[in-house]
C-alpha cells in the first residue's frame, strides 16, 4: 500500500511533552493518513492518551504539562496559541477511555454538539439525533427513554452514546482511546465493523491494547514505548515484518 504525503491528514512534527522534569512524549513524528485507520499500540503508560490529547489540545487543561512541536491539521497548527481551538476541536470527535456523558438527557447529549454546530430547527435536531444514535447502534435501546438522564445508561451504552455524540459534531477525524474496553464482545465487534465503514468518511486514530483488533482493522500502525515512537508503518509492515526488537517482542507477547 502506498501512503502518499498528500494523503496525510495529520502531521505531527517534533512533538515533546514534559511534566516537570519527566518527559512524557519524546520527539514524536507521525503522519496520519487520510481516510484510514491508524492504530496506536504500546504498553500502558507509554503516552498514547497524552498523544491523543495533544491532537485536540486537551493538554491545555493540565497546566503542569508543557507541550512543544507542531500538530498540523489542514495545515493549521493546533498547538499554536492563537489557533481557533474551539473550531479546530470540532474537526475531531473524541472517544475517551472512560465515557463521560454530559449532565443532561440522552437526547440532549447528542443535541448539544448539534446546536454548537449550528443546527437549529427542532425537526432537524430530531432527525439527526436519531441518525447518530442509529449510527452508534444505540437507537433501539434508548428510543423510548430519550428524556432520561444519560447517567442512567450502562457503561457500555454510555460508551456508544459518546460515540454518537462525537460523530454528531460532524468531525473529519475520530480520535478513539480504547473505545471498546468497556464493551461486551458483540458491541465491541459492532464498533469495530462501524469503524471500518466510517473510514470512508473519516480519518480514524485508534488506541487499543487488543492486538488482534489492531491487526483486523488497522491500515497504519504506530508502536510506542516509554514516550517514543519505536516503529511506524502500514499494518503489513509492522505486523508482518517488524524491524525493531521491541516491536517484535511486543507483538510476540514476550514483552517485559
Amino acid at each position: 500500500m502506498m501512503l502518499d504525503m498528500e494523503m496525510n491528514k495529520i502531521h505531527i512534527e517534533n512533538l515533546n511533552v514534559f511534566a516537570g522534569r519527566q518527559q512524557i512524549l519524546k520527539d514524536i513524528n507521525i503522519n496520519i493518513p487520510k481516510n484510514k485507520i491508524t492504530v496506536i499500540l504500546g504498553p500502558s503508560g507509554c503516552g498514547k492518551t497524552t498523544l491523543l490529547k495533544c491532537m485536540n489540545r486537551l493538554t491545555d487543561l493540565y497546566p503542569e504539562l508543557k507541550v512543544t512541536g507542531k500538530v498540523l491539521i489542514n495545515d493549521k497548527n493546533v498547538l499554536d496559541p492563537h489557533a481557533d481551538i474551539v473550531t479546530l476541536r470540532q474537526y475531531m470527535g473524541l472517544l475517551m477511555q472512560r465515557p463521560y456523558p454530559l449532565p443532561m438527557t440522552i437526547y440532549n447529549n447528542i443535541a448539544y454538539g448539534l446546536k454548537l454546530r449550528g443546527v437549529k430547527s427542532r425537526r432537524d435536531l430530531h432527525k439527526q439525533v436519531m441518525h447518530y444514535l442509529q449510527l452508534a447502534n444505540l437507537w433501539d435501546e434508548v428510543r423510548h427513554r430519550l428524556r432520561e438522564p444519560a447517567s442512567r445508561l450502562s457503561i457500555g451504552q454510555q460508551q456508544r452514546l459518546c460515540l454518537a455524540r462525537g460523530l454528531a459534531v460532524n468531525p473529519e477525524i475520530i480520535l478513539a482511546d480504547e473505545p471498546t474496553s468497556a464493551l461486551d464482545p458483540i458491541s465491541s465487534q459492532y464498533i469495530e465493523t462501524k469503524f471500518t465503514e466510517l473510514k470512508n468518511d473519516y480519518t480514524i486514530v485508534l488506541v487499543t491494547h487488543v492486538l488482534r483488533q489492531a491487526r483486523r482493522i488497522a491500515d497504519y500502525v504506530v508502536f510506542m514505548y516509554l514516550g517514543e515512537v519505536i516503529e511506524q508503518g502500514t499494518v503489513e509492515e509492522v505486523f508482518g515484518n517488524p524491524k525493531m526488537e521491541k516491536t517484535k517482542q511486543y507483538l510476540g507477547g514476550t514483552f517485559n
Binding site: 490529547k53 485536540n56 486537551l58 487543561l61 474551539v86 473550531t87 476541536r89 470540532q90 475531531m92 470527535g93 473524541l94 475517551m96 472512560r98 463521560y100 454530559l102 449532565p103 443532561m104 448539544y112 454538539g113 454548537l116 454546530r117 459518546c162 455524540r165 462525537g166 459534531v169
Partner: peptide, 28 residues
C-alpha cells in the same frame, strides 16, 4: 471530573458554555 470538561471541550464548547451549561447542571 476533568474528563467531563474534556468531553465538553472536545465537542467545541467554549469556557462560558462549559461553565453555565455543563458545570451548573452537573452540580445543580
Amino acid at each position: 471530573p476533568i474528563g467531563l470538561s474534556e468531553a465538553a471541550y472536545s465537542l467545541g464548547s467554549n469556557k462560558s458554555e462549559l461553565a453555565f451549561k455543563i458545570f451548573t447542571r452537573q452540580t445543580i
